[in-house]
Design a protein around this nucleic acid. Structure first.
Length: 555
RNA sequence: GGUCUGUUGGUGAAGUGGUUAACACAUAACCCUCUCAAGGUUACAUACAUGGGUUCAAACCCCAUACAGACUACCA
């Protein structure tokens, strides 16, 4: 009886401004009215200004998990550690997500505003809520103020290390746990700094089994650590406590997070048990790895690896659809097969399954991403390529943008070479890569040229070939006719017009139709490898062809 | 030190007791072919971390070991 009064005094002393109860908040944030099986998921980053590949995957999976069930996906900002925050950190994250079509239903929409009725969605504005929940624990004798200084904590840790004991604040190492309520009150009144710790009811020797959606059942010892709930300096909660309060009140049903959180799973389970809250389901995702220069497998680092930054793909012009396809292939192992069988369906029709997430860390495979991107781009219509490229160059290549803008029809025809067929050309890896394949089609870029004819290097011979072609064979009305004329030309000049004949008896000829074509190709484009020469000539047109031939001969 | 996770060919992976261990990317060769890209065919790789056990039978179940990783903060 007496103790209850003391606890009351202690709780009021610690949280003088709390004037609501847990019940009040339960009413403010009632259970969501969603259809059966609807998932409520979230992405909860620190406002660091950007998203890296690992978290993008996590956000993508959370979003997909919710969308599949007509659920809710929201964005919560975890800014309880001020050191992690940067200016405009939220907008940066929002942009990165938006670049990949991940748009939260609820949560922060810029630095200061949010949508949805389960907010605030930024933790620094939820202090009162955390304090209300924490005060309840103090009142119940389930949490206590801890006055241990950093040095004392380090000291006990050292002792534990030396004695090879389990490290942490628990049992007899939890000094402040045994303080009487009176003593605690006095210390606070004396102005001593303190954190609030959980008085863990757990016993390390008890085993508990927790279920992870990805890994199945995992056995742990019960948590007996008196973890910090509220920090001393800013009175903000730790991740553990914020997770409990926020995910309960925001009615999250599925927590997707990195596997680095598995270790604290028992803590979170215990917290939910103490409050008797409905427990969310947990999916712990494997880390995204890479092999570094030394052949060592390690976590993809946003500091060292350019491909870790989501911004990189945007800049490179990898279509967001391709990135999404790639993310989906690493998210669910059966996705690739599904896509093969349903090439025309949208990703949204694929049903995401937590159980199909690989438990081991995925090696990030840029080659695979490029391949997916290449295939994706090959299936687009020429007009789509044009439009998307215009958007891309507007941001990253103003000069090319202007050229494209002024030559819409011509550019679209270029992009249409060997496209829109069953077996389309696959040479564009990304939007930034397209210029490498088409620059020579634009006079603006057809300057400062060097010609390398590879095989036929005699200048007179080159001149002869070009002049012969220009004199007699500039008819582009039909591809077969055109090519037959090239062959005729070969015969007159002493080159093999038939590759098989040439291969059988190369000595008999000066070269083959391939070599002659190469001369024409290099003269017109400076490149030995291009798409179909006939198509290119048609697009260039007579006058440009002649112009370029003359330029070449005089070079 | 403690707790937990993971380990199938170069890479991503399928595969939860029963034929020659899918498939995709990468690589190589050949075919097609005016070059390239694509496409077709084929090949490729000491692939089930190691050692025990259970079983008629094990990648799959059990136990050890090794290696990698995470956590063990008033960081998330």
């Amino acid at each position: 009886m007496e103790n209850e009064k003391e606890l009351r005094e202690l709780a009021d002393l610690m949280f003088p401004n709390v004037n609501k109860t847990i019940e009040d908040y339960e009413k403010m944030y009632p259970e969501r009215n969603l259809e059966d099986g609807a998932r409520v998921t979230r992405f909860a980053p620190s406002p660091t200004g950007f998203v890296h590949m690992g978290s993008l995957l996590s956000a993508f999976e959370s979003c997909k998990a919710a969308r599949d069930t007509n659920g809710i996906f929201y964005l919560r900002i975890e800014d309880t550690d001020q050191k992690r925050s940067v200016e405009n950190g939220i907008v940066g994250i929002l942009n990165d997500l938006k670049n990949f079509d991940i748009i939260p239903d609820e949560g922060m929409i810029n630095e200061y505003e949010s949508i949805g009725s389960y907010g605030p969605y930024i933790q620094s504005e939820r202090k009162e809520i955390y304090h209300t929940f924490c005060k309840y624990l103090v009142l119940k004798g389930l949490a206590y103020p801890c006055f241990c200084k950093e040095e004392e904590l380090n000291e006990t840790r050292e002792i534990q290390e030396i004695n090879k004991e389990r490290i942490g604040y628990y049992g007899s190492f939890a000094k402040c746990r045994s303080l009487t309520t009176k003593e605690a009150i006095q210390k606070i009144k004396d102005g001593e700094e303190y954190v609030v710790r959980l008085k863990s009811p757990g016993n390390f020797n008890n085993k508990i089994v927790l279920h992870d959606e990805v890994r199945g059942d995992i056995e742990f010892p019960e948590n007996d650590l008196d973890i910090v709930l509220i920090k001393s300096t800013d009175k903000l909660p730790t991740y553990h406590f914020a997770h409990l309060v926020d995910d309960h009140l925001m009615r999250t049903t599925h927590i997707t997070r990195g596997e680095e959180w598995i270790a604290s799973f028992p803590i979170h389970d215990q917290l939910f048990s103490i409050f008797n809250f409905k427990k969310p389901k947990y999916a712990h995702l494997g880390l995204v790895m890479k092999i570094d220069e030394n052949g060592v497998r390690r976590k993809l680092s946003k500091r060292k690896d350019k491909e870790a930054s989501v911004e990189y793909y945007h800049k490179e012009g990898i279509p967001k659809e391709a990135v999404k396809l790639y993310l989906m292939t690493i998210a669910n192992s059966n996705f690739e097969e599904w896509l093969d069988n349903n090439p025309d369906k949208d990703i949204s029709e694929f049903k995401f399954d937590f159980k199909k997430i690989s438990a081991s860390g995925t090696l990030f495979d840029v080659n695979k991403l490029f391949n997916i991107s290449k295939n994706y781009l090959s299936r687009l219509k020429a007009t789509e390529i044009y439009d998307n490229l215009l958007t891309y160059t507007k941001e990253f290549d103003q000069e090319f943008y202007d050229i494209l803008k002024n030559n819409k029809e011509y550019a679209t025809l270029i992009f249409n070479i060997e496209r829109e067929s069953v077996k389309p050309r696959k040479d564009y890896i990304s939007y930034s890569d397209i210029k490498n394949h088409v620059w020579y089609m634009f006079d603006e870029y057809f300057t400062n040229l060097t010609y390398d004819f590879v095989k036929i290097t005699n200048k007179e011979e080159i001149k002869t070939i070009i002049e012969t072609y220009v004199d007699k064979y500039l008819d582009l009305s039909d591809k077969d006719i055109w090519f037959n004329k090239i062959k005729e030309m070969c015969d007159t000049l002493g080159y093999a017009s038939n590759m098989k004949d040439y291969k059988k008896n190369p000595e008999a000829y000066k070269g083959s139709v391939a070599d002659v074509s190469t001369v024409l190709r290099v003269a017109l484009t400076t490149k030995t490898n291009t798409p179909d020469l006939y198509e290119i000539m048609k697009l260039l047109g007579d006058s440009k062809i002649k112009e370029r031939f003359i330029k070449c001969i005089n070079a």
